[in-house]
Write a protein that binds this DNA or RNA. Structure first.
Length: 111
DNA sequence: TGAATGACTCGAT
DNA sequence: GATCGAGCCATTC
């Protein structure tokens, strides 16, 4: 565990995701400059389990809206349940209304 | 120190 | 339109 700005930046963005909205690893990576790599975002999420306050990692999915990281949750169903609880339609581990609930970090920018 | 891995993404075939 | 391969960077062995 290191106090890298990268993780902090990713966590901050994920925490800024509004209720009922989701974002993608690529969007976060792109917001960080895309040079950071989209995979690092997922890596940061892996660490987010022990990060406080809690990181709504369930609101972060891949570019097609598939719950790629659901397996890393306490329970694979947990991610889908949380998303559905926010009004997000999830089917076959994939967000159906992904286009509607998609949220871009640059939307808030520095706000 | 070098090589491998990973919750991804894009371009080419 | 679907499938395959390479690129991206930090962390770990």
């Amino acid at each position: 565990m290191k106090n890298n700005l990268f993780y902090d930046r990713v966590f901050d963005i994920v925490r800024m995701i509004p209720y009922g909205r989701v974002t993608t690893y690529g969007a976060i990576a792109s917001y960080l400059g895309s040079k950071t790599g989209s995979r690092l975002v997922g890596w940061a999420m892996n660490v987010s389990h022990g990060v406080m306050p809690k990181i709504p990692a369930h609101r972060v999915v891949n570019r097609i809206g598939m719950l790629s990281g659901k397996a890393h949750f306490s329970s694979p169903n947990r991610m889908q349940e949380l998303l559905e609880s926010e009004g997000i339609i999830v089917e076959a581990d994939k967000i159906q209304n992904f286009n509607e609930v998609f949220w871009d970090p640059s939307s808030l920018d520095l706000l």
